[in-house]
Design a protein around this nucleic acid. Structure first.
Lengths: 212, 212
DNA sequence: GTCTATAACCGGATAGAC
DNA sequence: GTCTATCCGGTTATAGAC
């Protein structure tokens, strides 16, 4: 058995429960009692393991942020062709956030509530911006894609992927009349949709991209 | 003077203050005392006017949601040409959410915290989905745009516009190293970027859109 | 309508037995 | 390590004077 990850079962149960509750309710909205119930243990134990609500929260938050950035960076380092990058990134990224819808919700909620938290984290979790910039520039130079600001490209990619998930209740309700199957099918198609959009938009030969 | 909107000055002050505080802190995080201070009045008055924190919150939340959907619907009804629609919508929409960053943050936070709230509102605040569908279909029929699912198109549009604003602290910090001017310039460019993005992507003559 | 004072409640944290 | 019981601070909400 792996001795290194010998976190007690209780500790694990608490972390899972806390993730669930914090995601739904946020830091302030969550109740220690609720987390205890979810974990099937008792309130005092939470404090035994994590000392305070704040500490418990931070542990989870940090892990979530790390997970996101690791995924993004892995895709950047792995691929040098912009189209392959977009395909891999979108697929992996949408997969991870669909499996853990708590991550983007959580992050978006908390960075806005408590922006100072960002500054504590920014030091050791960094998006590899230079690598991304460099890849984009290289693809432009090689004539593989039209020139666009890498910042816009990145935000386009993130916004298109994340939005339908963080706005789930609205999309679910307004667009699909509470039909879960339709909503899931929509998400299934989405990665392919995004990839094909970028193929067109970045293609130097696309109409409107020819400025000569 | 307009007699119909004769809401007392105090009531107005409270609503503005509450909007500010709820936006920053959310329902649970906000303190009635803080709202009272912000409004320059006293705690008891909040209850005199709005009975409870919950009631005060709901009034503001509902108004925010209405504002967003009104903007979307107005653009839909106003324009029948898809490109004109996108141009107008993006400009108006980005403007309204930049002036009131509280709206998208607020909505995204709260719909995830308390999805039941949505169901009470969905009855009388509605996106005019049929009108949007119809406009898209018409533009496809007339050969003005390539065929895409209207649902994806709408989410693309919303995601690209909203994301950089709801993720402000992250974008601001990671992408622009806390430089406010760069961030604002980025948002200034963004509407134009989005419009040109869709011009290319939807153009039936763009490379990859020619399936014949 | 607006204030001060206070009641009533809730929830995070701790003490201490097992 | 885990539990029960309890404390204590903070926050919503109300009573009642002006």
């Amino acid at each position: 058995m792996d001795k290194t990850k010998k976190t007690s079962n209780t500790e694990y149960l608490i972390l899972e429960a806390a993730k669930t509750i914090f995601t739904k309710k946020g830091l302030e909205g969550a109740r220690m009692q609720e987390i205890a119930d979810e974990a099937g243990i008792n309130k005092a134990l939470l404090h035994y393991y994590f000392r305070s609500k704040e500490k418990l929260f931070e542990q989870i938050f940090e892990k979530a942020l790390r997970e996101i950035f690791d995924t993004i960076n892995a895709s950047i380092h792995q691929e040098q062709d912009i189209y392959a990058f977009i395909a891999i990134f979108t697929k992996k990224y949408m997969h991870i956030i669909r499996e853990n819808t708590f991550i983007p919700n959580f992050i978006l909620n908390e960075i806005n509530r408590n922006p100072e938290r960002i500054h504590n984290l920014v030091r050791f979790i960094q998006l590899d911006k230079p690598a991304f910039m460099q890849m984009v520039e290289k693809n432009i130079q090689e004539g593989k894609m039209t020139r666009v600001a890498p910042e816009h490209l990145l935000i386009d990619l993130l916004g298109m992927s994340i939005f339908p998930i963080v706005a789930r209740p609205l999309v679910h309700s307004y667009l699909f009349n509470e039909d879960e199957a339709s909503y899931q099918r929509f998400l299934d198609e989405r990665a392919a949709h995004i990839v094909s959009f970028f193929k067109i938009v970045l293609n130097p030969k696309s109409k409107e991209n020819n400025h000569e």
